[in-house]
Design a protein around this nucleic acid. Structure first.
Lengths: 205, 205
DNA sequence: TTCTGTGAACCGCTTCACAGCG
DNA sequence: CGCTGTGAAGCGGTTCACAGAA
């Protein structure tokens, strides 16, 4: 089972299942079925079973899946059964909002450094973080061994920041800038694109 | 050509093409090819040609696509060759950041109303908008004939807000809350899910 | 020649359907 | 009987390859 290549689209559904499972857990459920999990995740039951079977046999025939057990398995597969230290680059309005948002830390993504290049911001505090100058970014990230970063700088600066992050040893970038980033093949980038999502929806109006 | 059902995945790539075309335009180009447009959009040339051919014959054999013309065609297909009035619900940190972000207006999505239910916020100004109480939301949106809304309220409140928005005649919702919304079939919802995107990437680290 | 538009081949994800176990 | 796990079938999107226009 391990070593087999899993379709990326399957991996991308695991966080969705996890989210639904957490909702079930909050509702006091202890067990679910592929049918129920699928319905609440907008995915067919067969798809759910096939997806999960890529990674193991997590269910019990006749009774379904144990919610806590399956959640733990998915967290383990996604490597989010541990915490991840994250760097945040760019403290405009959006960076500010993200730095103060507790949702990332609740899922194990701890923002440990916040960088900006604006001299009037450097040294000031945002929550419990002191804003650090980008000059020391590469070295700081390298020394801390951080591999995940969020980019919330203006589009025109995003590529330069990405280049620095790659140099600093970052392996995964969540990009909030309205720009597509050029990075080496072994670096993962996901872009948050609310504008593209809006434009997409307009087609159907 | 019109009336034919276009795969949603094709529609979802149009905004990507448009974004790339705009970059080309800014770089002073006037013409491009499926090869060039594809490379900069991380999509194969054949895919680009096939996608565009769903909607018409926009290129010239031998020379490629006129950038301005193709941009206009895509904007027209997506119905973003006009402006859209948008309502924003929820003025926490994120809503605040979005209300002040000029990127939406630059692409024709004008935020015309901002709602919140916090009495200490209602009546205060954010940019040029006065924050309005949610009590008058349904009526205000209905009267203005607005069909697009952004939800930036806490997860627990998102479904209730969505229900109201549907009642108000909203047809497309961009949901920033960490929650999946239940809405009638004819309403489009897209969710911005940075946390799911991060979790997805962790698999590959 | 260059590059588009497109039928056909291909490939991979989704769905089906059922064996098998509790 | 209920529900999983899974080979096989089905389907839809992607890629190929080439006719044809500039």
């Amino acid at each position: 089972m391990t070593g087999k290549i899993i379709p990326d689209i399957v991996v991308s559904r695991l966080p969705v299942y996890l989210q639904t499972l957490q909702r079930f857990a909050k509702e006091g459920e202890t067990t679910t079925s592929s049918k129920e999990l699928g319905e609440r995740s907008c995915i067919t039951a067969a798809q759910v079973r096939k997806d999960l079977s890529f990674f193991g046999e997590f269910g019990k025939q006749g009774s379904g899946y144990n919610i806590v057990f399956l959640s733990d398995q998915i967290r383990s597969i996604l490597k989010i059964n541990r915490g991840w230290d994250v760097a945040l680059v760019g403290v405009g309005d959006l960076g500010h909002a993200i730095a103060r948002y507790p949702g990332f830390a609740e899922r194990g993504f701890r923002i440990v450094f916040v960088f900006d290049n604006d001299p009037t911001k450097i040294g000031t505090k945002i929550g419990k973080h002191t804003i650090l100058p980008t000059e020391i970014m590469v070295e700081t990230i390298k020394n801390a061994g951080i591999t995940v970063a969020l980019i919330t700088v203006p589009s025109r600066a995003a590529q330069a920041v990405a280049d620095q992050l790659v140099q600093a040893g970052i392996k995964a970038i969540l990009n909030y800038a309205q720009a597509s980033l050029n990075v080496p093949d072994h670096i993962r980038v996901e872009t948050v694109s609310p504008i593209l999502q809006l434009q997409h929806m307009m087609y159907y109006l």
